[in-house]
Design a protein around this nucleic acid. Sequence first.
DNA 1: GCGACGATGGGGCGGATCCCCCAATCGCGG
DNA 2: CCGCGATTGGGGGATCCGCCCCATCGTCGC
Lengths: 215, 215
Amino acid sequence: MPRYTSIIADDHAIVRAGLRAALEAPGMVMPEGLEVSAETADGAETIAAVRSLKPHILFLDVQMPLAGGTEIALETRRWSPATRVVVLTGISSVGKLSELVEIGVDGLFSKATSNDELYASIPKILAGTRCVSSHVLALLENAPDAAALTGRERQILNLIALGQSNKEIGAVLGISAKTVDRHRTLMMSKLGVHSVAQLVAHALKQGLLDASPEL
Amino acid sequence: MPRYTSIIADDHAIVRAGLRAALEAPGMVMPEGLEVSAETADGAETIAAVRSLKPHILFLDVQMPLAGGTEIALETRRWSPATRVVVLTGISSVGKLSELVEIGVDGLFSKATSNDELYASIPKILAGTRCVSSHVLALLENAPDAAALTGRERQILNLIALGQSNKEIGAVLGISAKTVDRHRTLMMSKLGVHSVAQLVAHALKQGLLDASPEL
DNA sequence: GCGACGATGGGGCGGATCCCCCAATCGCGG
DNA sequence: CCGCGATTGGGGGATCCGCCCCATCGTCGC
């Protein structure tokens, strides 16, 4: 009967300690016990640890320096396909969350979820069932607008958030300023906003941008 | 020899567990031991607990539902002046951090700070010395522009980020749209940006806004 | 094939922005 | 007392935004 192995990846030492304390409580998670094989604090470190240890579970924070949660999840899929990826998040970024769901992470929990909910879910995840905390689920359902943006629109939204004008964006993308304006108008209509200010605020709060404000 | 008492206030269960595990390690923090008298998960709960328990230390997260970290710190000062307020933050919001420093919290740490640094600092804080983690200190020094905004400018910045036009803001504040425009121009010059989009992006990233994007 | 939709453009119009000029009042510190 | 900055307000002009109209291409799916 092999003990289950895991890696805890989070840039916050306190969070790592809390998760470790919850997981190592004997008998609480798995009868055989769940061993924390490593703790990592950034993206590169995490990917390296996953490649060498190939744990049963990777507990992963979305906001990590050096590599984002999305990238780590994809790398894990590549180098250790059997590893269950469980994402713990403290953010409300609908964009990133739905992105993670699309990638197909095995678990998605808010850091506010109780230990009981974790205890109940981990055995299911190890067995192959995908679990999403009710907390996160409610968030995803209350904002279906994020996925409504097309690729081009998202691209333009990033440039708008940088403060570029229609003309500048057109120059960068090699299209006319008028087309940029057209995309912008459609986007605002989709998102239900009526000005660039609202658009940028909405984009940043919902996490629709690629540029993650790291640290 | 009285045991020291404390309250842990954080909306994330995992963080509470991690901090509790670190604090209750016997002999690590204070020779007499540090008791965690209560855990609270929102602002109102925290203020109530502080008023009734009057602990030696309050460990406080900045981002809390129902009441912000700033408000809780002020209420604690009012109802239990002897309580040392130690703020743990995962954010880079220069605005809120400098606000907390002005209020005069007794400790200010990033959630990424090691347990060792905490262990070393807590006795000092109980003795009355203010401690700020090197992490946070570096952040405050690298962005002096936040404090450059006046009260009125900050107020207007909030409304701009909501997507209000100059005219609407003027109506809300009871001043002319032209004055709003003047403040906006000065602000943009101070922050080194050249459009509302950049202004909103900068404000949100630097955490200059009152409206905290809760959960 | 044929419609649906994304992406690409154009014309035009009202309003808002961005930035320059100007001035007045008030409070605070040297 | 006098300057300095915060706050208030106005005029004007170049530019850009916000939103209508219109059109042409592809690329999907049915």
